[in-house]
């Protein structure tokens, strides 16, 4: 028996909007730790890792570890039917081939049940080694989204370079090239508007903008984004989900032949 009650039901709606374009089908794993997902895109270039910790749910019952295969587009369709202020409960019986999403309006005057068919997904689970990153950039998520969108109108790839001057996002295309430099800026009144750069070594990596733009669909989940870079490793783009956990995107770099 599984029963997970999330008062902030719209968090789940936002999570689905953030991942459904990157991944079609995925297993949601439920354990005493929380509700999680790890899935790669079809070309195995990007990976999404989601964790919603059990403590973040108002009620969390998971009698045994369960893996539920879901089509994310279908799940998003169902969650779109929940109101933004609705409480969402995820329910499944042991051995069942369906999952139920229950939506309750805040004043309890409307209760809806949406039952979705589960699917068998044979997915590879990847171990992500702990890593030391050469540079960690924390910036407003809306600013990062703006830069990715702007650069993708000029080119297909972005070079992200971190030096002691700041973080530089560069692209080039048929019509010209573009560079955006963000400097460390901690003097603003609100911490969520600041940019911080923790650099151990300068680093410069090239990535496909198509994937970066897809990651920025998670912007509504968090006011800040953390970008962790090492010359030997995939970049990690992390959006923290307040009091619940995180959504992390890993993207393999492009390498010169």
């Amino acid at each position: 028996m599984l029963e997970l009650r999330l008062v902030q039901g719209n968090l789940l709606k936002k999570v689905l909007e953030a991942v459904k374009d990157l991944v079609t089908d995925a297993n949601f794993d439920c354990s005493s730790t929380g509700f999680s997902l790890q899935a790669m895109d079809s070309s195995h270039v990007a990976l999404v890792a989601l964790l919603l910790r059990s403590e973040g749910f108002e009620h969390y019952r998971c009698d045994r570890n369960v893996s539920m295969g879901m089509n994310l587009n279908n799940m998003a369709k169902m969650l779109k039917c929940a109101g933004n202020d609705d409480i969402v409960t995820i329910k499944a019986d042991d051995g069942s081939d369906t999952v139920t999403f229950m939506f309750e309006s805040p004043n309890q005057d409307k209760i809806a049940d949406f039952e979705m068919k589960l699917m068998d997904i044979d997915s590879e689970h990847l171990g992500i080694p702990e890593a030391e990153y050469h540079a960690i950039v924390r910036m407003p998520s809306s600013e990062f989204a703006r830069i990715c969108k702007d650069l993708s109108s000029i080119g297909d790839t972005v070079v992200i370079s971190v030096t002691k001057e700041g973080v530089k996002f560069s692209t080039r295309g048929d019509i010209g090239n573009a560079n955006v430099v963000c400097r460390q800026n901690t003097t603003v009144d609100k911490p969520e508007e600041s940019t911080t750069i923790e650099m151990h070594e300068p680093v410069s990596l090239t990535f496909a903008l198509r994937y970066m733009n897809s990651f920025t669909k998670a912007t509504p989940l968090s006011s800040t984004v953390t970008i962790s870079l090492s010359s030997e490793l995939p970049v990690v783009v992390e959006y923290k989900i307040a009091e619940m956990g995180y959504i992390r995107f890993y993207l393999a770099p492009k390498i010169e032949d």
Binding site: V45, T206, I255
Partner: peptide, 14 residues
């Protein structure tokens, strides 16, 4: 142009 890596060489499959 630079070529796109996949994630597999970076992560441990199990």
């Amino acid at each position: 142009p630079p070529c796109q890596n996949t994630l597999r060489p970076f992560f441990i499959s199990f």
